[in-house]
Structure formats: C-alpha cells, structure tokens
Design a protein around this nucleic acid. Sequence first.
DNA 1: GGTAGACCTGGACGC
DNA 2: GCGTCCAGGTCTACC
Length: 293
Amino acid sequence: MKLILPARLPFSLASVIHSHGWIRLDPFREEESTGGLAYIAQLDSGQVTELHIQEVPGGVSVTFDGDLSDEECAEIERSVTWMLGLDQDFSAFYQLARHELRLASAEQRAQGRILRSPTLFEDVIKTILTTNTLWGATIRMNNNLVAQFGSPLLADPPRRAFPSPARLAETNEETLRTQTRLGYRAPYILELARELSSGELDLEALKTAGLPTPDLRKRLLAIKGIGDYAAANLLMLLGHYDFVPVDSWALKMVSQEWYGGESVGRAEVEAAFEPWGAYKGLAYWLWDWSQEG
DNA sequence: GGTAGACCTGGACGC
DNA sequence: GCGTCCAGGTCTACC
C-alpha cells in the first residue's frame, strides 16, 4: 500500500534523516539506494509493518506491506507526519538566520526538522541512552532493547519494532542491567515503562498539550534519568528551542569558537546563543562550526 | 543554589 | 590477557 503525504515547504527528507543520530538506532534504517528512510512500526492493533519513506515533489510517499484497515493507515499517516515534522513551519527562524553566516544555508537546505520516533516514550528512552556514555554504547544498548523486547516483523523476524511500554514493563531490572547492558539506566527505563503501562503517566499527551516551555521542561525533568541536557534535547524534539542541550561537545565547540580554547561551562554556552531567544537551541543545533567566523 | 562523589560501560593504554 | 584510567550526564547527599 502507498500513501502520499504533503509537507510544508521547504522540505528535504535528507535533511531530516541526517538531522541527528536517530537514523542509526533501530528500528530506523537509512535506505541509501533510494535516499529514503525505513522504520519498523508496531501499530496500536499490534500489527508490525515496515514503512518505506521516500521524498516526492511536495512531500513524501510511504509504502508498506499488508492489507491494513483505514484506521491503521490513518495511524501511519499521523506517525509519519509527526516523525518527519511535515507540518512544521520554520519561516520565522529562517528570517533571523539569513543574517548569520553560520546559519545562512539553513533555509536553502530546508534544515530545522529533527527526526523523531513515533512515540515520545521511544524518544525519551533513546535520549536516556545517549547520556553519560559514548555513541557506540548508545547504539548497542538501543539495539539490544529492540532485539530482546521488540515485536518481530513477520516477513523478516530478526528485525523488530521498538518495544512497547507494556512489553518492557514485564521484564525486570536485573535483565535490563545484565542482558540488555543498560547499567544504572535500567531502573529508570523500567520505572518509565511501568508508569506508562499502568496509565499513571501519559507521556504522549505532552506532544499536544500546548504547554509553555518551562512547564514542559518541568514535566520532562520529573522523569528519572532526564537532566538538563536530556530535557533540552527532548524539548527540541517537541518543537521548543528555548534551551541549548549542553553536553561535552557543546562545551568544547563554544570554547573553541568564542573563548580561544579556554574551559567554559554551561552558562557560557547558554550566553553564546542567548541572542537567538526562542530559537537558541535550533541555532546551536544547526550552527556551522566549520565556517570561519 | 551549588558541589562532590557515585553510578556503569567500553575503549584506550601500558605492562 | 589483564589491570588501570578515562569519558560521558544524572542522581543524591550534603553544605
């Protein structure tokens, strides 16, 4: 089956795919032969299907196997629209970026959209897996989670969807620590899965709650394992760019760019992007560090 | 509000 | 092959 979904222009699927490292985490996959993106989705009905997404004039096409119901197709449409931010509008940011050499090509490249998972649950877990570790370990932990707890794709069972909260809630901390190799993150992820599974917490509601950034940030910081960096990262995924996700790389780049290599802290990074106001996180994200200032 | 130390893994390095 | 050190954010206890 095939769906055609429109995107607000300018749009570039390649820009979304390469917006950050999510494309390298299961169940995402880059389809290099087509320049497209594949994602193994588990629908609300339980059906597992692989979505193949390619850019077409004015938007994207989404193809998938199986004879799915209208309801399932509508769910795929909602998910892909969210994942790629098809309806996001960056015109105000582009207007500001035109006056900054380091961001001048953002509009031409249609940058701004950041690849998201269909659920905030998946993005929160992936974000926790990026903290206090190296990228290689993030990939390993995430892929272990998918391989051990994800529902299999019928046509290719070794490949799996991202595990649901309910499936993760059934496991235990010891398994997550020793077999999935999550280390000290195991209790955080288990607690989150159990809170979602029991209905105690409705994470997905945060996508559409329309909360102001400080309130949204407070809700994210209440999740164990989410600190300043992770909250800023998730706020960006939710379309709020008021905070810079300050990690060791940000400290290094700001130190080199504005402080002659002298050691800097979080305050200096925030200060460097302060002029960008509500877009400071996005300005940091898209900043072209390779350009001469 | 700020700070120190613990948390855990895997890669790099020296022996 | 083994032991040690280090990088990477967040949490908790303490001041």
